[in-house]
Amino acid sequence: NITNLCPFDEVFNATRFASVYAWNRKRISNCVADYSVLYNLAPFFTFKCYGVSPTKLNDLCFTNVYADSFVIRGDEVRQIAPGQTGNIADYNYKLPDDFTGCVIAWNSNKLDSKVSGNYNYLYRLFRKSNLKPFERDISTEIYQAGNKPCNGVAGFNCYFPLRSYSFRPTYGVGHQPYRVVVLSFELLHAPATVCGPKKST
């Protein structure tokens, strides 16, 4: 009989979030998941669920729940959905087409922007091929755009693959930082360890 609440607040209220290319994953298990708490945590810009209804979450049980978190800019949030393409979905964080879970995003301009520009958040701009779903690539190998090998040196047709967002508070919403948490629900042929409040007794 599990009584402890799932530590969603640790994920959502973390002081620092990860850069999207090096997104963070927390496995959540053996706890009571009260998803209604999430609705009250922040004024969400996005709370979209796929393959599951957000209002039914509190009635369900899962084997595992994974919470992935990272920062992107406002106009990239739409890429965090099944079947999307674009720089983020292709080279940084890719959801599977049959994704079961929820994408939660909110504006973090007050936390993640600086007047002089916050350069701490990076994204991958160049990659030889698209990522597979939930693949994480943290390599910093020089990207070869031409025929000549780069031998690890940046220059003509040889690019450092990561680029930094420079978040400034005066930017338009599309270029402001957004914190994203992706909850993916895993149903294996194994005992369910993460249940809503109704199912945990």
Rank of each mutant, 00 (worst) to 15 (best):
S166I: 12
A42M: 02
K114Y: 15
Y39V: 05
F134L: 14
N87C: 04
S36T: 03
P197C: 06
N151I: 14
A14K: 07
A190Y: 01
S139A: 14
G196L: 12
V153Q: 01
T201V: 02
T15A: 09
N64I: 12
A42T: 05
G51N: 14
T140A: 09
F134Y: 03
S113G: 15
Y119R: 07
N30A: 12
L125V: 00
Q144G: 14
Y35P: 10
N13H: 07
P43S: 07
N130H: 12
V194S: 04
V37H: 04
Y159H: 01
N30S: 13
T3A: 04
N64T: 00
V32R: 05
G83F: 12
N13F: 10
Q79E: 13
G196P: 05
T201C: 05
F45L: 05
F126W: 04
H189M: 06
N147H: 10
L122W: 03
S200G: 05
K56M: 08
L111Y: 09
Y39D: 12
S19N: 14
F45G: 05
S166H: 04
S166C: 07
L41D: 11
R163M: 01
T63N: 07
S184F: 11
T100V: 08
K199S: 00
F44W: 07
G155S: 11
V153K: 06
Y66T: 09
I104Y: 00
F134Q: 14
N147P: 14
Y143M: 14
P54Q: 05
T85S: 00
D75K: 08
D97H: 08
V194E: 10
K26M: 10
K199M: 11
T140S: 02
N58R: 06
V153A: 06
V115I: 08
L38I: 09
L122I: 03
F45H: 00
E141G: 12
A192T: 05
D75E: 13
P43D: 03
P7T: 10
I2M: 01
L41F: 11
S164R: 04
V115W: 15
D97G: 08
T46K: 01
L41G: 01
D9R: 06
N109Q: 11
S164K: 11
T63A: 11
S29N: 05
S29Q: 03
N147C: 08
N13T: 07
A33I: 06
N58K: 05
K110N: 00
N87S: 02
F134H: 11
L188Y: 04
P191R: 07
R168K: 13
G117N: 15
V37S: 00
L41P: 02
F160E: 06
F126A: 00
D59E: 03
L60K: 03
Q144N: 05
G196R: 11
I2Y: 08
P43A: 07
L122Y: 02
F8W: 05
V153I: 01
R27N: 07
N147G: 00
N118E: 14
N130F: 11
A192M: 03
T170Q: 11
Q144S: 12
I138V: 09
F62Y: 05
Y50F: 12
T46I: 02
K198H: 02
F134M: 14
G83L: 14
P149K: 02
I138T: 02
R16S: 01
L125A: 09
L60R: 10
N118S: 15
S129M: 11
K114F: 15
V194C: 01
N40Q: 10
P149I: 10
N1Q: 06
A18E: 12
P149N: 03
P54V: 09
A33T: 07
N120A: 04
A42Q: 06
G155M: 15
T193C: 07
N87Q: 10
T63V: 06
V173I: 01
T3H: 02
T55A: 00
K110F: 15
N64S: 04
S184T: 02
Y119W: 10
R27V: 11
A190V: 12
Y39F: 04
T193I: 07
L122N: 00
N147S: 02
D9K: 03
S53G: 09
Q144K: 11
A14S: 07
A42V: 06
F156E: 00
F160H: 01
G155Q: 12
F126R: 09
L5P: 00
Y91W: 14
I138P: 14
P191G: 03
T100C: 00
T55P: 11
P43K: 04
K148E: 02
Q84M: 10
T55G: 03
Y143W: 08
V32Q: 11
D59G: 06
A42R: 07
S19H: 15
G196T: 01
H189F: 13
F44S: 09
K110Q: 09
R163V: 03
L122T: 02
K128H: 00
F47Q: 13
D98S: 11
T55R: 00
V37N: 07
F44H: 02
V153Y: 03
Y39K: 01
K132G: 08
F47I: 05
Y143H: 07
T193D: 02
P197Q: 04
P149Y: 14
P169S: 15
S129Y: 12
F62G: 13
V65I: 13
V115C: 15
A33Q: 14
V32C: 12
A67M: 13
G196F: 11
F134C: 15
A42W: 09
V32M: 03
F44L: 09
T140C: 10
S164Y: 06
V32F: 10
S29T: 02
N109R: 13
N24S: 08
R136K: 09
I2K: 08
L122C: 10
V194T: 03
S166P: 15
V37T: 00
R78T: 09
P149D: 03
L5F: 04
D34L: 15
A192E: 02
T140I: 11
A14Q: 08
D97N: 09
T55N: 03
D9M: 09
L111R: 14
S19P: 14
N40H: 13
V153S: 11
S166W: 09
I138Q: 12
K114I: 15
N151D: 01
Y66S: 14
T140Y: 09
V173T: 00
G83R: 06
A154E: 07
G83N: 10
N151S: 08
F62C: 08
N40M: 13
L188G: 10
V52F: 01
D98A: 12
D9F: 13
D97R: 04
V65M: 09
K114R: 14
I138M: 09
T63K: 01
N24H: 08
T46F: 11
D98H: 12
N24E: 12
A105Y: 01
I2Q: 07
N1R: 04
V194M: 11
L5G: 13
V173A: 10
K148L: 02
K199N: 04
A192H: 02
A192V: 03
P54M: 07
G174Y: 02
G152E: 11
L41H: 01
K132D: 11
D97T: 02
A190C: 06
E186G: 11
F62W: 00
L122K: 00
Q84R: 05
N64K: 09
K56R: 06
S116D: 03
P197G: 10
